[in-house]
Design a protein around this nucleic acid. Structure first.
Lengths: 253, 253
DNA sequence: CCAGGGCGTCCGACGATACCGGACAGGGGC
DNA sequence: GCCCCTGTCCGGTATCGTCGGACGCCCTGG
């Protein structure tokens, strides 16, 4: 989890930075990437040629962008995950029943990774996409996951990634977080009150197996619809029921 | 499209091969990858450490697998595609209306890439996943795309990727293919009669803009349900109507 | 309990090669 | 037509990726 270790194969790291830069810039030319990464044009060009040959980036006459080969590797990795296979159809049903977005998240390298989402009929466009990463403590799903990790791992995660303030309700105090995690364990589900995106609220529940957490699911929607009775009992019940179904199906698989 | 050119940055190619091997093997250890790639253990180990540091692969105490970082890059690339944004909700509706799988494909590097699928209520499990690549001429969507590419590009694609026989109905003759493409242009949509997967049939239509093809959509299902009136007119009408909606919405965006 | 073989991991030296400065070609706009 | 700013190409040198070999671990079977 540290970034102090120099990686064995530097060139791969450079290519990785090029792709990461493309992720920030969307599309970019050689020169633009060179200045952005403070690396000579020719070096960037070498890497882009390589990545293009491997179909990892696409070249629209001089304008480069990330290719769909990443989607292939990533899609394959996701396909192989049991929790994805089991949860996916239940997530779809959950979105249909609530009319809101329903999501699946797992933890990887101390971050929350959105694995799948199903868009409810009433749902607004979200900023997340498959593979999108967020600090765990900023989402209901992430908090549901943290609540069921050993305390030392929670502290390690916080040490590694910090507790950045995203909105004005983001939890930035460690003691406050641990109190909330305790409460989440008691009531079985977690809430997110605009802690990552203003105007969005979320209800999340963990997916457990033999006491260890495999991931979490959630329903998210605009504050206007996520309040009162619906936010307090209706949505949580839907989420908990779905989580339970997934847990049962995981046990059989 | 050729693979004769030696790539500028060899090390990136090696890492790429490691990841590709992981895609074939699912999970594997250092030794296993070393023998599979006929490369010294230590070299593989170096690359795995690098890839792990970059969160591109995950290490479950000695067993390596592809990480979700690929999903992030790929998900980002997909998110940025206008055709994905526009087509996605229509694909979902198409799946609901027909009860079968509905799909979105684009062409990249002469191959067909599955960009998105929505699973109908009656749908059986598919072998495809996001980013999955297939030879264009083996699917209805691919043929719909080929039908609207310039003939020299079609020939270039066939030269580069060949016409492998996948099932006993796969098209392997160039003249036969060109005849079918002509027919597809006339009737506006394409059919797949178990040409890639035994027992599966498919109806696909292109998404066009100013005469150039942006991608294709399809409905696919088991032969038992994809026949007679339903296969001949009902499904094609749904597909064509959806393709038209997408084209109109693309024009506005 | 110990020997053996398999594993993942580490180390260090040599030589291939990635990096980068600089030169070139093409195209769009004053 | 000129200029500037693209993307592209080339070749030398110092770097760093490669690979043989050794280590320590775990599991298995004697």
């Amino acid at each position: 989890m540290s970034k102090s270790t120099p990686i064995p194969v530097k060139a791969v790291g450079v290519s990785f930075e090029v792709v990461s830069a493309l992720q920030q810039l969307g599309v970019a030319g050689v020169g633009e990437l060179a200045t952005h990464l403070e690396t000579p044009k020719s070096t960037i060009h070498d890497h882009l040629r390589t990545l293009e040959e491997l179909e990892l980036v696409v070249n629209d006459n001089g304008r480069y962008r990330i290719g769909t080969k990443f989607l292939e590797f990533g899609g394959y990795a996701r396909q192989r995950m049991k929790i994805y296979e089991v949860a996916r159809p239940e997530i779809v049903k959950l979105a249909e029943r609530t009319g809101e977005h329903a999501n699946l998240m797992i933890e990887e390298h101390g971050q929350g990774v959105f694995l799948f989402k199903s868009e409810g009929t009433d749902a607004v466009q979200l900023d997340t996409y498959n593979g999108y990463r967020v600090p765990l403590q900023t989402t209901a799903m992430g908090k549901a996951i943290l609540a069921h990790l050993p305390e030392e791992r929670v502290r390690a995660v916080l040490d590694c990634h910090g507790m950045p303030q995203i909105t004005d309700t983001t939890i930035t105090s460690e003691t406050e977080l641990f109190e909330e995690l305790e409460q989440i364990r008691k009531q079985g589900y977690a809430r997110d009150r605009e802690e990552r995106v203003r105007g969005m609220r979320c209800v999340g529940a963990p997916v457990l197996k033999d006491g260890t957490v495999l991931g979490a699911i959630s329903v998210s929607g605009p504050k206007s619809r996520m309040q009162g009775q619906r936010f307090d009992t209706e949505i949580p019940n839907h989420v908990l029921r779905t989580a339970n179904v997934i847990e049962v199906n995981m046990a059989y698989a």
